[in-house]
């Protein structure tokens, strides 16, 4: 799950506004607009895909200071123009950004046991190193 609509629960379909580059051909018949094609690639198509990917990555990598807080659901939602394609809502949250309201000290304390288990595993692993071949 990467994005979540806080209004309808949609997790899959979204709208985003991006800029694309089109080619304008000035002819005797008038103006013709089409995809900008260079020798070996379609610049409009590639640009559109790249811009969409960049925009989505940017939305997903926002910090909490760049987002707005929704007190009802206790989650942050994006301030950037990303819309739910189902209900049109602008309140799109990033589920991974639902930070717990714990201090760092409390969080470390809570996870101490898990961390110690990892340490134990590492020690066990260190003690069981494979025996090197000896002549």
């Amino acid at each position: 799950m990467r994005l979540l609509c806080l209004c309808c629960g949609n997790r899959r379909y979204f709208d985003v506004d991006i800029e694309s580059l089109k080619q304008l051909n000035s002819d005797t018949e008038g103006l013709i607009i089409e995809n900008a094609r260079f020798e070996d690639f379609d610049f409009t198509e590639d640009g559109l895909r790249d811009n969409l990917q960049n925009q989505v990555d940017y939305i997903l990598n926002q910090t909490s200071s760049q987002m707005l807080f929704d007190s009802a659901t206790e989650s942050y939602y994006s301030a950037i123009e990303v819309l739910c394609a189902k209900c049109g809502s602008r309140r799109i949250a990033i589920p991974s950004k639902t930070f717990k309201k714990l201090s760092l000290e409390q969080e470390l304390e809570q996870n101490r046991e898990e961390f110690q288990n990892i340490r134990k595993e590492r020690k066990n692993h260190e003690n069981n190193l494979p025996v090197l071949w000896q002549p």
């Binding site: 990467r2 994005l3 506004d17 694309s20 080619q23 304008l24 051909n25 000035s26 969409l52």
Partner: peptide, 27 residues
């Protein structure tokens, strides 16, 4: 006086696939 490039804003409808990639549904 023939070929030019013009920037145009579009609204892109997309979906997240199961494998984490993005598919464009409508422009």
């Amino acid at each position: 006086h023939k070929n030019f490039l013009i920037p145009l804003w579009v609204r892109c409808t997309f979906k997240f696939n199961e494998d984490g990639t993005i598919s464009i549904l409508h422009i």
